[in-house]
Design a protein around this nucleic acid. Structure first.
Lengths: 342, 342
DNA sequence: ATGAAAGCGCTAACAT
DNA sequence: ATGTTAGCGCTTTCAT
């Protein structure tokens, strides 16, 4: 029956007709406008609405109110462990506040990210939470009236856009310090970067710690992944190459767990014992560090707090409140596991 | 400036006024209605629209057309590896067809799933893709006019709701057959189930294979996880308990990779060599099987095909076409890795 | 306490 | 080729 028209749901008008009141009254009751109707009518209306399974037409409501109770969540890749966890918390939090969330996957492409800002605004979302893959947001975004909050990463020109970030730099500091305190003399750092977004907080934390403990910063001990190979392969290969040089190493701090895992595999295959001969710390507290054997010490971020804070700030902005701060930092924490045991 | 009103975007009316034509003409041009305007007006309108950064008000459009170009994606848990991958593909596919997708996390709670069906219909989504956590959909869903397609899992009473599933049963058959062919005589099965949704396709595939090869089905060799412990812990403990009984075992087929991983850890800790003394196959091709050492053989599902098919079917339904089939099965595939090597 | 009516931005049927 | 207008379902102001 392809030609059968979509059954148009029961409207406020239907309910008004059935209960014998006006649409205004129905609207008042349905929206809990404290007054403007008697208890009797209220009950009658509610009963009818209920029995007909009334759900309000959001399109009409949005049109009238210029408010859609929807938000957009822009992120690089929802299939990524960390991001999907953020998505989970954000959806949960927003749902509790009666907002639905559009998921927007940029696949790390600048163009897509920009388009999503447009699309979302066309859809009339009330706000946007953005994990940007860009170094710079476009002007219309930062100057527009759309409430936007950047989380996890923050482009350079966020201007009046609040952002909430992990304290990555401090996390890296903790990781490096931990290795130093465990007696490591030569600590290799494995960083990584993606196209549009270059930030070096983690590297800076590593360097901070080295300096704080009077160590020399040797650029030869700083390696980079560039995403050319999947998963942990690239880091495994990087470390293998590095090891050929015969530099002394007794510690590795990798800026992500997958890289730490790759490094672990490589050094193990070289007959180096972890943690006896070499200690490793990763970053993210992901499955990679948890599943490895030995389990890898790592820096945990707090996706739940990150998400909640982002939501809270956005909610405020959507209510035209000025958020109390412009920048929020979520702490980061060392998780000690076997790979760095004394 | 909290009191500054949200800048109301430029509307079709503004553009009409500026270009000196009627809203009808603007609408025609903006919607590419082939005729009804001269090339000259077309260009003028487009130029103005462009320079003012016009984006059409979807609420108004939806209200008028009873079409929102949005769909809902209901799933148990977006932070789950497999589901988030599905979400990725679905979002990508839908975006290409100019649909935005609402993400709806049920956390495996019946109540939430039901509510989302309501909420989404109130939001006027044009269709819903559902990975249900329920054994049975409620009546209003299956009898309603909302296009719905179930993917990955399918409740019992899907009636006229199409569903697209993985061939889990065959996958399990392949896994079990593989172990048999590798010489395993006593194959332990580790199943799992969640509250609202009980399906035993994977167990059936295991039994199918046993029977096909003339093996006796011994219920003592069928274990269940019930989600009481996180990750792979439960399976690790289950296997540890089982091993105490001293039943002979030389093969384990776990219905999910995490369970396979847990089993692997346990048997290794018992001094059993994998794959020499005992072979293991998992299910899902997740990080668990890939990161384990030895890497665990597993059954791969095809989330991309699953997602694409689901989208295609939903798109058809939303265009009031009758989908050519009611049921779709996506094949499943054995991936041989070290844990089951000869 | 209740109702009538305007209007949100858009599309499409019906003029011209 | 272009314009006028009704109306989608809702909220809200202004009467009553």
């Amino acid at each position: 029956m392809p030609s059968e028209k979509k059954k148009s749901a029961v409207s406020i008008k239907d309910i008004a007709r059935i209960t014998g009141v006006s649409v205004a009254t129905v609207s008042r009751v349905l929206n809990n406008k404290g007054s403007g109707y008697s208890e009797e009518t209220r009950e009658k209306i509610l009963a009818v609405a209920d029995s007909f399974g009334y759900v309000s037409n959001m399109a009409a409501k949005s049109l009238k109110e210029s408010k859609s109770y929807t938000v957009g969540l822009i992120l690089p890749n929802i299939s990524n462990d960390f991001f999907s966890t953020i998505a989970l918390y954000i959806e949960e939090y927003m749902e509790q506040h009666h907002y639905s969330v559009f998921i927007c996957n940029t696949a790390n492409q600048e163009q897509k990210e920009k388009e999503y800002f447009r699309t979302l605004s066309g859809r009339g979302v009330d706000g946007i939470i953005c994990i940007s893959g860009l170094n710079a947001l476009s002007d219309d975004i930062i100057t527009g009236n759309m409430p936007v909050v950047c989380i996890d990463r923050h482009p350079e020109n966020t201007k009046n856009i609040p952002w909430v970030m992990n304290d990555d730099r401090h996390g890296s500091y903790l990781a490096t310090e931990h290795l130093i305190k465990r007696g490591c003399q030569h600590i290799l750092y494995i960083g990584s970067y993606t196209a549009g977004y270059k930030k070096f907080e983690r590297e800076e934390g590593y360097i901070d710690a080295l300096k704080a403990y009077g160590r020399r910063v040797d650029r030869n001990y700083i390696l980079y992944e560039n995403g050319s190979k999947p998963h942990f392969r690239e880091s495994a290969d990087l470390v293998r190459e590095f090891m050929k040089e015969d530099y002394p190493v007794d510690g590795i701090f990798a800026s992500n767990d997958a890289a730490a895992y790759g490094a672990l595999r490589t050094v193990q295959s070289l007959g180096i014992r972890v943690p006896e001969d070499l200690k490793i710390v990763g970053f993210d507290d992901s499955v990679y560090s948890r599943l490895a054997s030995p389990a890898i010490s790592t820096i945990a971020r707090h996706p739940e707090e990150l998400s909640r804070t982002g939501c809270k700030v956005l909610l405020e902005m959507m209510e035209d409140k000025e958020p109390e701060k412009r920048e929020w930092t979520i702490s980061t924490e060392l998780i000690e596991r076997e790979s760095s045991q004394a």
